[in-house]
């Protein structure tokens, strides 16, 4: 027992090095994470509780909240399905283009969200590639809700797939094969074998995807057109309010986003903890 302790003591830095490092890290966290968060709530309540709630129930604020919820409600389930399908394809089949698909999944992480938004404008905008067809069929995508949904889906695409691919790779397909030999069809196998196995990992991916879908600014900003009450999501609404010198109202809406972020963080911790607890019990290969 004493040998490992000695080893870890040997690895430990002396206190005069450790203490300043620790202080530095704490100062960093305080300055860049805690202080801004406190500032958001401070400014939000600077004109009192009544003003705070008034800012939230304002016509445009409610429209922005509704739109954000709508976009999230479409983008998250869509990306959950895409993510599961992509992870399934990549981990269970070998086909030409598999490597390409893997890198394409990462594309939204690699390109700036603004570029992503611009690509949609170039494709679907008034001068875009599909403009004639869209005009002929009276479909509006850019500066409308469909564009916002598309941009959000694009930006949040990797979260679920990225979470599931390593998980499904590690688990292997033997249990699925066992299910097939027992007569399970695709649907039964998915519900009874695949989903319970990836459950917590999936939850983790969905939470991250959800957080990003709510908070996405860049790509959405490009395709939205900032039409009040129509194409403003919560982050865009915050920006507009701030630009119009309605600082307190802007921070009130922003505090809502901050609360969501905190809730996401808590949920993420919980799921991560459950996930780690679920894994060791998986040892059939003993």
């Amino acid at each position: 027992m004493s040998a490992p302790r000695l080893a870890s003591n040997a690895l430990r830095d002396p206190w005069w090095l450790r203490l300043p490092l620790l202080m530095l890290a704490l100062a960093f966290v305080a300055l860049f994470l805690v202080l801004p968060l406190l500032a958001v709530f401070g400014y939000a309540f600077e004109k009192g509780v009544d003003f705070y709630f008034a800012s939230l129930v304002d016509e445009d604020a409610r429209a922005a909240i509704r739109l954000t919820l709508l976009v999230t409600a479409i983008a998250v389930p869509a990306n959950t399905l895409f993510g599961i399908a992509a992870a399934w394809l990549i981990t269970r089949f070998s086909f030409p283009g598999r490597g390409l698909l893997l890198s394409l999944i990462d594309l939204p992480f690699a390109v700036s969200p603004v570029i992503a938004g611009l690509i949609y404008v170039l494709l679907f905008g008034a001068q875009g590639l599909f403009a004639p067809w869209l005009a002929a069929h009276d479909v509006k995508i850019i500066f409308a809700v469909p564009g916002i949904v598309l941009a959000t889906i694009f930006v949040t695409f990797p979260f679920v797939a990225r979470e599931l691919i390593p998980l499904m790779q590690a688990q292997g397909s033997e249990q699925e094969q066992a299910a097939i030999t027992l007569g399970a069809g695709g649907f039964a196998m998915f519900w009874r074998v695949v989903l319970p196995k990836i459950g917590w990992g999936l939850g983790y991916g969905v939470i991250l995807c959800n957080a990003r879908a709510i908070g996405e600014f860049g790509a959405v900003s490009v395709v939205s057109g900032h039409i009040r009450g129509l194409t403003n999501t919560m982050p865009l609404h915050v920006e507009i309010l701030y630009n119009e010198y309605q600082r307190t109202a802007a921070f009130a809406v922003a505090s809502l986003l901050a609360l969501l972020a905190l809730a996401t963080l808590a949920l993420k911790q919980l799921v991560g903890w459950r996930m780690r607890r679920a894994t060791p019990a998986d040892g059939t290969h003993a």
Partner: peptide
């Protein structure tokens, strides 16, 4: 299966 492949859950 060689490693049984039981459903752990």
């Amino acid at each position: 299966f060689q490693h049984y492949a039981l459903f752990n859950h």
